[in-house]
Amino acid sequence: MPEPMKHSAPEASSFAGALKSTWPILVALGALALVPTISAAIDNPFLIRLFTRAVIFAIVAVALNFVLGFGAMVSMMHAAFFGIGAYVVAILAFHDFDGAPLWIFPGTSNLAVAIPLAVLVAAFGALLTGVVSLRTSGAYFIMITLAFNQMLFYFFVALQKYGGDDGLQILADLNFAGLNISKRVTFYYVALGVLAASLIFFGRLVNSRFGVILRATAQNERRVVALGISPLRYKLAAFVISGAVTGLAGALWATGQQFVSPSDVSWVRSADYVVMAVLGGMARTWGPVFGAVVIVLLEALLPSATQFWQLPFGIIVILIVVYLQGGLADLFGRARPSSGGGR
């Protein structure tokens, strides 16, 4: 086996090594787990809602970063996968409430059915768009994914039956196989659990043979081809996995908000996810979590401080890009370069 194919994850072999490279995210997850307690202590239930948003967006940013930071695919359509997941849950609940079947299938409010379906449909969407988009690369890939994002946006706007531009309110009582998970604290821990699971999942994937080939492809596609490996299949698989996890986050979003709208699918949201991943730090699986939390908090706090919140927000973004080339994760020490993300 030539060099780049080697299993390059010494951290995984020793517990101390693992701790050394992942302590910031362990601390962060620990802090996130305390949010409901703090919220109860200061009698401010909104805190949980705010952090639920941060945690769900963090799942998307982590999933996006799998293709962005490790596969050099700058996708501008992750809001579309998110929206697909969210709309699948909302539309199924709509038909359950309404009683009318969706074509021949009955609607459902059981998330044990709706969520896997949402993930499946998002994965299928990623497969279809990925096959076409991955013919291109670089800036062309950014733009073709943006085009698909816009198409889906206008598709949801056109769904007048499901609210069109006004969005769709979920009126049915969502449950998970009969369990009520829409209680705020329960739901928050569910979302946090999904985030932790995604981190473990993507962390392992990045260091697996699959992940190594993906990273090698991002660095030098020709060398991978020379080894007799078809990089396209690996890139497509990565894109589908990323889209599926994003669809899962979307399904969670619909469950938590009880409301979906085309603005969840807008290209600006896609750009937000990219900003979260890059600001957080693309070199590590967990970097984007910091990006997502910081951006969600800034967006909530700055506007209540000043009407001209875009000015400080823009300046913060510029300063981070200019001075922290590896994103916020670099605050905890530099990572080894892992790919040529975005080049």
Binding site: L68, V74, G138, A139, I142, A271, V274, V275, V278, L279, M282, F308, Q310, L311, F313, G314, I315, I316, V317, I318, V321, V322, Q325, G340, G341, G342, R343
Partner: peptide
């Protein structure tokens, strides 16, 4: 600002110019 971004990757360029959009919008509003 942008001079130092010629050698950086596209993502960094997108991000820094996105930051500039926000700054410009609020400056014009001011």
């Amino acid at each position: 600002i942008l001079r130092r971004f010629y050698a950086r990757d596209h993502l960094d360029q997108v991000l820094v110019t996105f930051g500039l959009i926000l700054v410009f919008n609020d400056l014009v509003r001011l």
